[in-house]
Design a protein around this nucleic acid. Structure first.
Length: 242
DNA sequence: GTACGAATAT
DNA sequence: GATATTCGTA
């Protein structure tokens, strides 16, 4: 068993409990009997099961010719004007729902996330590639890490020092709260009481001036903490103008 | 061409 | 809300 396999599992979380949603459309002309059950191995790529691909939802509208999004910065990219010969009809490519094959959602299980954060701390300055390499998770792609990193940053940097913010906690609002602490009791709450663990911030030296920073962080494969939600919604009671 | 960051789409 | 994909740039 590779770490990867283990790391991947445990993604079957909630069912209609909250935010579980299926990327696939709800309408299936055919009762797909192909239950995704007992799939020996999960394919990395999208697997088209029947003639009807469930992944068809990814019908992309054409985004060409219109400056739909080219409004960024300067220079538009898709500004093809005046197509030489525009066929009125005909030439309509029988484009069947062309699924550009959206990848299956990557399940960032706590374990995976833990590795992610771990890598972040080790690196200090984390770039997707580095993280990916450090995580050593097979099957994980740069894009996935990148995406996750984006989310991570979004949630971690929620500290607008708009006015005089008073807090220091902001930094403390980091992601991982409880982990690494494994009690003898395995079943239950990993930290119910929840003494917030003293997070060691990533040395804070973003500049990475010295490679000497040797954190003794071995490969600790543990921490079953669930739900790494960034519920650290920092409520700033007090006053917020506007 | 690759990689990263942000914006956007699903 | 979470992840994927696209866009712009270094």
């Amino acid at each position: 068993m590779t770490i990867a396999e283990e790391t991947f599992q445990s993604c079957s979380s909630n069912r209609n409990g909250g935010s579980a949603f299926m990327p696939f459309s709800t309408y299936s002309s055919v009762p797909v009997t192909t239950v995704k059950l007992s799939a020996p191995k999960e394919e990395k790529e999208e697997t088209v099961m029947n003639g009807f691909s469930l992944l068809t939802s990814g019908v992309k509208s054409l985004r060409e010719g219109f400056g739909s999004r080219g409004s960024r910065s300067s220079s538009n990219r898709a500004v093809s004007s005046s197509p030489p010969t525009v066929q009125p009809s005909l030439r309509t490519p029988p484009l069947q729902p062309q699924q550009t094959s959206r990848k299956q959602r990557r399940c960032w299980s706590p374990e995976l996330h833990r590795r992610f954060v771990n890598a972040l701390q080790k690196l200090g300055a984390a770039t997707p590639k580095q993280i990916r390499e450090l995580m050593q998770v097979d099957g994980l792609t740069n894009d996935e890490v990148k995406s996750h990193l984006q989310k991570y940053r979004l949630h971690t940097r929620r500290v607008p020092a708009t006015s005089g913010n008073e807090s220091v906690v902001v930094l403390g609002g980091l992601w991982m709260s409880q982990e690494q602490y494994n009690d003898s009791s395995k079943g239950s709450s990993t930290a119910s009481g929840s003494p917030q663990s003293p997070l060691h911030l990533a040395t804070g030296s973003r500049g990475g001036t010295s490679p000497t920073e040797g954190d003794s962080m071995e490969d600790d494969e543990d921490a079953k903490s669930e739900s790494y939600s960034w519920k650290s919604h920092i409520h700033r009671h007090g006053k917020v103008g506007v």
